[in-house]
């Protein structure tokens, strides 16, 4: 597989990330902020987050906006995400549906042994297996 110890991945593009870091540091160094306000010594931050998340009045010690709608939307998004993940992991083969969950990952395991350069035909599992694992 890739990214082994000697993957020799190209470090040159990384310079762009370093450059971005330098630019940001330069910008932040020149910036000045007022002193942080803080939450006050005995404020109950966790309870405030809980109230904010469910839009329950102004019971919390620390101010916040209401997040009930965002909470519900994120709940739906998570649900969709899990469905999507299952959908993507499924594959149809010979008319029968083989899901990622039911084959226990054997399929994946089998083919991972054939190495990355195997052509993407359905040569598949009948081909002689190559020993030795990854490159």
């Amino acid at each position: 597989m890739t990214d082994g110890p000697d993957a020799g991945s190209n470090l040159l593009p990384g310079l762009a990330a370093v450059g971005l870091f330098l630019v940001m540091v330069l910008a932040f160094a020149g910036a000045s902020f007022p002193a942080p306000q803080g939450f006050g010594g005995d404020a109950n931050v966790t309870a405030s987050i809980g109230y904010a998340m469910f839009d329950i009045g102004n019971l919390g010690d620390v101010g916040a906006e209401g997040f009930l709608a965002a909470f519900l939307i994120v709940a739906i998004v998570l649900d969709v995400a899990i469905d999507g993940a299952v959908f993507l992991a499924k594959r149809e083969e010979g008319g029968s549906v083989v899901t990622a969950l039911t084959d226990g990952g054997r399929d994946l395991l089998d083919r991972s042994r054939e190495g990355p350069n195997a052509p993407r035909s359905e040569r598949g599992r009948d081909a002689p297996r190559r020993e030795g694992g990854d490159e």
Partner: peptide, 14 residues
């Protein structure tokens, strides 16, 4: 490569 271009673009923009 796309990511690199995006990064370079962001650096240039900043």
């Amino acid at each position: 490569n796309y990511a690199a271009l995006l990064t370079l673009g962001l650096v240039a923009l900043l």
